[in-house]
């Protein structure tokens, strides 16, 4: 871990100003991903701004009938919130399937969204990685790819986004609220928040320089049956080999988002119009680029969808 200076910010404005004042500054909240990466010098901020005391830890109803989740709401608290459990069960389920209780107690909503993508080569600084050193090349291509992406990949990067929470937020069409150093705010649809790698895989989100996530807003509840199915070799405390966030609606206009497939939570709205799981799977996976190690994700996705359709039918 490179030496850094540290300060504690007490208001969002002070945090934004502190960030602007220091070229290599980063916010730290839960720290569960950032410190992991700093220890390996994959992240090397010169200055840390502790944002834990900004008060962004409330979950409030919106006038539209949705919920506004403060950026610093801990994953445990979000999953356990009575309104989330009742009206957005897919989000609660997704959160609870992620990491461990200890990590969920620490990790924040914004931190979860902003966690770096996963790839064992990204984590090993002796190997080339376009994320760590743009232009260095990608060691994962042609390497151990079993857990890596098959959708939206590029020659430069095939890493996957590890978040479960973000997959559920994607299926719920959440909005990510931000504030810029000049005080302007905006709401970014979650679909546009994470980027595909393209030839700049080191840029993982569409956040602008100095911009800070302040909240995530959920639209009014969709109703329906909420399912989060996480497939993994180990029963718990493992990243998804594949995950599916599903909201099964009586209208038949179901929604599906996928984890473990791509550099971002993966959702193909067009595919949701299809009536059979096989047709949905085919449309979701259009353009898949697989390796012999991860090609199994293609049939797996179809089978998981089939079991979700069956579950929805059984509970109807």
């Amino acid at each position: 871990m490179k030496a850094f200076t540290y300060e504690r910010a007490n208001t969002p404005a002070a945090a934004a100003m502190a960030l602007a004042a220091q070229p290599d500054a980063k916010f730290i909240a839960g720290g569960t991903n950032l410190l992991d990466l700093m220890k390996l010098q994959i992240e090397t901020p010169a200055h840390l701004i502790d944002v834990n005391r900004l008060g962004l830890d409330k979950i409030e109803a919106t006038p539209e009938g949705g919920l506004r989740i403060g950026a610093l709401v801990r994953n445990t608290d979000l999953a356990a919130d009575a309104r989330i459990r009742r009206d957005y069960a897919v989000l609660s389920r997704a959160l609870l399937s992620g990491a461990s209780a200890q990590l969920r107690n620490k990790a924040t909503t914004a931190g979860n969204l902003l966690q770096r993508t996963r790839c064992p080569y990204f984590y090993d600084t002796t190997k080339p990685c376009n994320k760590r050193a743009p232009g260095a090349g990608c060691a994962a291509v042609g390497g151990f790819t079993r857990n890596l992406a098959i959708m939206g990949t590029s020659e430069a990067c095939i890493a996957t986004h590890p978040s479960d929470m973000a997959v559920a937020m994607r299926v719920l069409d959440a909005l990510v609220e931000t504030v810029a150093p000049d005080g302007t705010t905006r709401a970014i649809p979650i679909a546009e928040f994470h980027r595909l790698p393209g030839d700049t895989p080191h840029v993982e989100t569409t956040l602008r320089a100095g911009e800070m996530v302040t909240a995530v807003t959920l639209p009014p509840p969709l109703g329906g049956l909420h399912i989060y199915r996480k497939v993994r070799d180990r029963t718990s405390y493992a990243f998804a080999t594949l995950s599916v966030a599903a909201v099964m609606l009586p209208s038949g206009r179901n929604r599906f988002a996928f984890g473990g497939l791509a550099h971002k939570p993966w959702r193909v709205e067009e595919a949701e119009k299809k009536e059979t799981p096989a047709a949905v799977a085919e449309a979701v996976l259009a353009g898949a680029r697989t390796t012999p190690q991860n090609a199994f994700k293609v049939p797996l996705l179809g089978r998981v969808l089939a079991s979700i359709f069956a579950q929805a039918k059984a509970s109807a």
């Binding site: 540290y6 504690r8 730290i28 839960g30 720290g31 569960t32 410190l35 992991d36 840390l48 502790d50 834990n52 445990t76 461990s100 209780a101 200890q102 990590l103 107690n105 620490k106």
Partner: peptide, 22 residues
């Protein structure tokens, strides 16, 4: 691994992934 688990204000966390100054 969880071997570093401590309780902070009653909640369990991984103390390895937290800075003391925080």
């Amino acid at each position: 691994c969880g071997a570093c688990t401590v309780l902070v204000d009653g909640r369990r966390i991984n103390s390895c992934l937290s800075l003391a100054v925080m």
